[in-house]
Structure formats: structure tokens, C-alpha cells
Write a protein that binds this DNA or RNA. Structure first.
Lengths: 349, 349
DNA sequence: CTGAAAGCGCTTACAG
DNA sequence: CTGAAAGCGCTTACAG
């Protein structure tokens, strides 16, 4: 403890056993070439000395990598936390290790983080892009030799010819359309779209799905029903009053995501409405809290943990087969109906 | 794209510039030894060829590491997600990269994950131990050359002589005592301790703090007031009825954590009580949801993100100074008073 | 079945 | 100010 003792290496083991380090290397990789007795002796010596394999050195020699970089906007957001958990789980099962980074929604920070991770020579990159990140940046920092998987949001600009990346996204438009159609089927007519930053690609797509459903039902959407908020519970709560500022007050809201919806439900109580009884709310994501809200929240399930597993599988496969055709996976988002929506027949006011 | 082009190396740059690779290396490390013109030429060539530094190779040569392993129970738990975000943020700022792993509360999985991460030769390990993990395991897999920082929970058994590790924990006992004392000061006398697994170290400590405060006030605690649940919102909700099964029903509950407390508040409504009006509730952790609950939850703030930053700083410092004395940091847990607790004078029944 | 030698991409004394 | 050489801990043909 006084001074750091040198780490045990292959050489130490080989020396102690009186064999060459090539032999020890073969034992490590369980080659059938080495005699059972020799193997036994070498393995015993490794245990005795507490040898630990230096995979970085092996990877350098073999020109391979067993790490994958994962960059998300914000780990503290349950959606990304679930996604990261899924990525890590699936990568671990395949013998890869996860290099974590987070951008905090800043394109500049994302560049730095990616740059730092790239120096560790990952076999691939899984990126949930910060708002405002553009291909021009990504290409220079990631280069053309490392497979990139983009998750959840589209990247601004267009990739230059020859820069290929895979994509996993949610069917935001279809999800929001399904939520809106449920409310329409339940008899609601004055339906708002509540929350999200209008300039994010996911919010644009969800709004488009909502508008589609409204248009198909022949309904107009006053501007006052399109309410922008930060995509957080706090903001969803704070701006609830905006729904009732005007004359034509809605009886239902399709929310940008669950965080906003859960915040809104609290805000509704403050405004004298009872969610699930005289005001209907839908969310998006199906985070764990959605099922235990008061009332439980009707939402669109996107299963972020499963998306994480899928992303990990895709990037590992791509690393093994660089020539494979580009994949663009838009995952259907499923409606999960709970008590926060109700038929207007039940309405008490 | 058809076949993977070789990665650009120092050699390529040196060759193209007609200098030795030692010179290029010096440029990389911004040594003042190299002539400004040469530096310029080399840097231009790097940009031109899209060179990316191979830090793994450099680390191997220098016998250093710029990675830290982080193993948590469950990333999807907001408490650990915040912690991980703090760790990653602070490590990134110091030029380290985070190697992520999760144990899913299984000691066996934890062993595997740690083993795999150790092969990447981290400069240190930050571990929030799975329940049931013991020193015997940790020592063999982590070895004595890599600094270990244990967070949040104590590890079973005792470390063998010479195996040193740092510790950051929360002052569970003082936190629970403070919560109980607040309720006492507000005039409550029949106070239950609600939730948690009695055999986890954090629950034991919190219960001890609660008992201390009750004893100091000369109050008895019937067994029926010590209620065990899984530490989740769902269970906190489901078992609310147990508080009112007996004759001497409490008017307040100190809860094991926020998840349980938020669940309990919903359950109270079902039982015909109004949290913050005729029943007082306290939590532990101050997760983001606590502040926006109905009513907002009085709780003990532990600031997991700041704990993460602190853990990162400590492990990096330890890696630089192996001889430093062992650190055992028990973080004061601060009472944050909100509307879920109230003076009995205000009570309506 | 085992050993000697070269090399992965970098850095570091040591000469010049 | 720059170059030649050795070495980090491993693997991989190639001989024997």
C-alpha cells in the first residue's frame, strides 16, 4: 500500500511456471493446443498471483475494440435512464463494456464528450443527439470508421455521401394520432396539445399526428390549444392555467410526454378540474410512474429499455458487418389505456 | 465502406510530414520543444487526414488509466440515475471516462460485471453495492491495486487487513431522527415508521434514528407501528391500510424513502385520510417528484447528484495518492420541510 | 505441444 | 529542435 506494486502480467506468470508467455496466452484463450497439465499449472499460478487480464493491451494488438460509447442527453430523465439500462444490459451480455457520456442537451458539450470517448477507440457509438446537433459536427468527431447509431431524434442537416448511420426512432406521429383518436372516440371535441418544445423533432412529429387526427375528424385547432413547455413535470404543472385562459376551454389534452402529463394532472386539481373525471389527459413514454399516477395515465408505450437492447444489438452487428445495408427502424408506439381518459358520457360537467 | 480502411496513426502523420513520430507525439502533447512551423505543419496534416488519438495505446505505454468503473444497482432508479449523472459529469470534467455497469441488486451479477470492467484497467472503482455483497468477493475481483469507493450501503463482512476503500454514505440515522423530531415538535405523538426492508443497512439505520427520537421524547413504539414494505411506490401504496388496523392508530408516519411516502399518500386518501391535513408524512431522498407531490412532501435531502460528484472527486484523488489516509464520509441529510407535515393545532379531526 | 520474434499505437530517455 | 531505439502487455504466425 505504501507504494503501488506493479500489476501482474503474462510475463510474471510465464516466468513463475517456466513456460513462454505465448503458452500462457494460449491458456487464457482456452486453446486446445496446450497440454492439460501445463494449463492446470498456469491457471493455478494465475489465481495465486491474482492475475487480471489486460484487455486494453490485447485489443491494441488485435486491432479490435470491446467498448461501445453511449451518449445521452440526460441520465436523470427516466426515459434515458431506462434506455441506458437496456443498452448496458445487452452490451454486457455480448462481452462489451459501456463508455458513458452525457451531453446535457448541449451540442457543444456533446462534441467534447464524443471526442473524448472516440479516443478510447469504441467499436461503435450510440447517440441520442442533443437538440441542435448537426451532421457536420458529428462526422468530423466520429469519423467514417466507427459505426454510429442515432436514437430517438433526428440530426439536423443531412449526412454527407458515404457517411452511413443506423437509426432507431419512435413512431411519434402514429403515437400521438392514436392518443388523439382515442379521445375523439370517447366523445371529446375540444382537445389541446400540451407541452414540449415546438422546435424539437419529436415534438413536431407528435404535433403532426395530433393535427392529422383532428383534421380527419373535421375539427379546427385554435392556436391557444397548442401550448409549449419545457418537457418536464415542473413546467407541465406550472402552465396548466394556460388551458383555461381562453373562452373555448378544452376537455382533454394530448401531452408531449408523461412528465408533462403527470405535472399537468396536479395542475388541473389546482385549477378545479379532476383528471380522469372532467378532464382527460394522455401522455407519451409509459415511464414507471405513469401506471401509479392519480389517476393512472393513459399513454403511449415506447419501452425505452427494450429500445436500448435493440440499439446495442444493432450497433454490435454493424461493427461486425460494416458492409450491411443501412437500417432505419421506426418503432410502433402502442396505446396503453388507463383511467386518465374517459368517455364523455361519464363526464360530470 | 466496402472494407474497413485502416485507422490513421501517428506514423501516417509523421510520414506525410517527413518528421519522426516522436516529433508528432510532442506536438500532440503540446510540448514547447517543437518548432512553431513544424507544429503548424503537423497539425494541419492531422486535420487533413482526420487523425484521432489512440488513448488506449498511450495509456498502455504510460502505465496509466483514464477510465473509472461505475457500478450501480439499477440505473432506472432515480436516486442512482442522479448519482450516475453526477459521477459522469465530474469524471468528464477531469478528463476521465466512465465505464458503466449495473448489478441489478444481484451479488453474482455484480461480480461478473466488476470482473469484466477490471479487465479494462480502470484507475478506480465506484460501487454502490448490491444487497448481500461481501468483502470476500470484492477483494478477489477488484484486487489491491485499484482504489475502491463504496457508496450508500455498507458491504457485509469486514475487509481484510490491507484492503482499504473509501466510503460515502448518508447519515441515515440523523436524517430519520430529524424527521421524527419535526413531527414531535409539531405535536404528533403517535408516529409510525413506514416502509423499507428491515434487513437492509439503510433501513436499520433510519429505524434507529426514529427510535432514538421517540425514546428521547419518552414515547413507546408498538410493534404495529413498524411496517415493512418493498421500497417502492407501489408497495407504499398497497400497505397503507396496515397503519389503521389497530386501535392506537398513528397520526403521522416517517417513511423509509420518498417512493414509499408518495405511494402512502395515495393510499391514505383511499383510507379516508388527507395527507398534510389530518395525517403527516415524511420521506427520504428528496427525489424530483417530492416537491411536486400533492401535497409537496417533507423529506430528507441527500442530493444524489452532488454525492456522485463527490464520489468521482474522491476516487480520482485516491488514484493519484494511494498512500492517503482512508476516507469515511457520512453526509449530513438535511430536512426539507413542505406541506405534507403540519402542526397538530391545524388538524381538523 | 512450446518458444523466439515481430508488432499493435503510442511515449520516453538518450543522442545528436 | 529532431531522430533512432526500446518498451507498455498482449497475440500471432512461424519454427521446432
Amino acid at each position: 500500500m505504501a507504494d503501488t506494486p506493479r500489476r501482474i502480467t503474462l510475463n510474471d506468470i510465464a516466468h513463475a511456471c517456466g513456460v513462454s508467455r505465448a503458452t500462457v496466452s494460449l491458456v487464457l484463450r482456452s486453446s486446445p493446443l496446450v497440454h492439460a497439465d501445463t494449463r492446470e499449472r498456469v491457471e493455478a499460478e494465475m489465481r495465486r498471483q491474482g492475475y487480471v487480464y489486460n484487455r486494453a493491451a490485447a485489443n491494441l494488438r488485435q486491432r479490435v475494440s470491446t467498448a461501445v460509447a453511449l451518449v445521452v442527453n440526460d441520465l436523470a430523465n427516466p426515459f434515458f435512464a431506462e434506455f441506458a439500462a437496456g443498452v448496458d444490459e445487452a452490451l454486457g451480455a455480448k462481452g462489451y463494456v459501456t463508455l458513458l457520456g452525457s451531453s446535457g442537451e448541449s451540442a457543444q458539450r456533446q462534441r467534447q464528450v464524443l471526442g473524448s470517448l472516440m479516443e478510447h477507440n469504441p467499436a461503435g457509438v450510440i447517440l441520442s443527439p442533443a437538440e441542435g446537433s448537426a451532421f457536420a459536427d458529428l462526422e468530423t468527431v466520429i469519423g467514417r470508421h466507427t459505426p454510429l447509431l442515432v436514437f430517438n431524434r433526428e440530426v439536423a442537416g443531412s449526412a454527407s455521401k458515404g457517411f452511413l448511420y443506423d437509426f432507431i426512432g419512435l413512431d411519434n406521429r402514429a403515437g400521438a394520432r392514436a392518443a388523439t383518436e382515442l379521445l375523439l372516440a370517447q366523445g371529446h371535441r375540444r382537445i389541446a396539445f400540451y407541452g414540449g418544445h415546438a422546435d424539437s423533432s419529436s415534438c413536431r412529429q407528435r404535433r403532426a399526428g395530433y393535427r392529422e387526427a383532428m383534421a380527419a375528424a373535421g375539427l379546427e385547432v385554435p392556436d391557444a390549444w397548442m401550448i409549449e413547455t419545457a418537457p418536464t413535470r415542473l413546467e407541465g404543472n406550472a402552465r396548466a392555467g394556460l388551458l383555461f385562459a381562453d373562452g373555448a376551454t378544452p376537455t382533454a389534452a394530448v401531452c408531449y410526454n408523461d412528465a408533462v402529463a403527470l405535472g399537468l394532472m396536479l395542475g388541473l386539481v389546482r385549477e378545479g378540474r379532476q383528471p380522469g373525471v372532467d378532464f382527460a389527459v394522455t401522455g407519451f413514454d409509459d415511464i414507471p410512474e405513469a401506471a401509479v399516477g392519480v389517476p393512472p395515465l393513459t399513454t403511449i408505450s415506447t419501452d425505452p429499455r427494450e429500445r436500448g437492447r435493440q440499439a446495442a444489438a444493432m450497433v454490435v452487428e454493424r461493427a461486425a458487418h460494416p458492409g450491411m445495408a443501412r437500417r432505419n427502424s421506426v418503432v410502433p408506439a402502442l396505446l396503453t389505456q388507463r383511467a386518465s381518459t374517459y368517455g364523455k358520457a361519464k363526464a360530470r360537467r
